[in-house]
Design a protein around this nucleic acid. Structure first.
Lengths: 142, 142
DNA sequence: CTAGAAACATTCAAGTTCTAAATATGGTGA
DNA sequence: TCACCATATTTAGAACTTGAATGTTTCTAG
């Protein structure tokens, strides 16, 4: 009992739509929480991804954007005193990004807000695990 | 055997990252195909969502964007002769969007391109169904 | 039947995000 | 050393987004 390739394509299209829909919901969720802290979405994403000291390139990759884009965002965060660009200890080409005390504090509050009413709350822990497995396989196998 | 709420939050954060990652791959996939047809991502999305005559508002919703944004995109498509704004048959406030012959042709080519090397090809048909179920549940229950 | 509220589309202003190309500087290996 | 790669930034231009305001038209409560 195979599915005709025609409706297969339709199903994949709808599935892409669902993935985008959920991603959109997540993005909205982030944005809504971010504005209450005076941040844009990208700034919030950057803050969230700052799990520790890293270079511009690393941050750009974690944000899945171009380095020039990361420069723009970090500029804003630096102006707000949330992040610092230091000389990289071993590579003089690179900068080392470090959160300031204010940045760390704000990051904690952000993570707390993001955890509330998560867009994934409609799924049980088992279902979240299943979803994770499927997404990992989809992302890796291409 | 319950999971501590701490690591639960971490897991959800990672899952959000995966969803965003796959959405990004899909978006890149669309963009790469779109440029070969002289379209931007948003224009391609609009074309893809034009399954038939509809109003600006309907299109905006299908594109999950603001109506003012849809105006911007439709302007471009209209200049390229791919879409037409007609008077709505029953509501004089609304416009009815209709693809031109060129628009229909291009849409077909776009759909064909999008179906090739889909970002979801790493999943079997069963897995795609499972993913669909999970995503629908996540999106609806919130 | 009429006045007020709501819906549709557009415009405008301001800002954010993105790509692509160019630049300056520093590292690396033949 | 010298040619090549990597890091970060700058710049220019475009695309995208939001939010508010506007002009029509429709709906609806009274």
């Amino acid at each position: 009992m195979t599915t005709p390739p025609e409706s297969q394509a339709v199903a994949e299209r709808e599935l892409c739509g669902l993935v985008n829909g959920l991603a959109q919901q997540i993005a909205n969720h982030v944005r809504e929480r971010a504005v209450t802290l005076g941040l844009t979405s990208a700034q919030a994403t950057a803050l969230r991804e700052m799990t520790g000291p890293m270079t511009m390139r690393e941050l750009a990759e974690r944000m899945s954007c171009e380095p020039s884009n990361a420069t723009f965002v970090v500029d804003k965060l630096e102006k707000q005193g949330l992040i610092e660009r230091r000389a990289h200890p071993t590579d003089r080409r690179a900068k080392q990004l470090v959160l300031t005390a204010a940045g760390s504090t704000l990051r904690e509050r952000l993570l707390e807000l993001l955890a509330r009413e998560s867009p994934l709350a409609g799924l049980s822990t088992q279902q979240q695990r299943a979803l994770q497995d499927l997404l990992e396989q989809a992302i890796i196998h291409r």
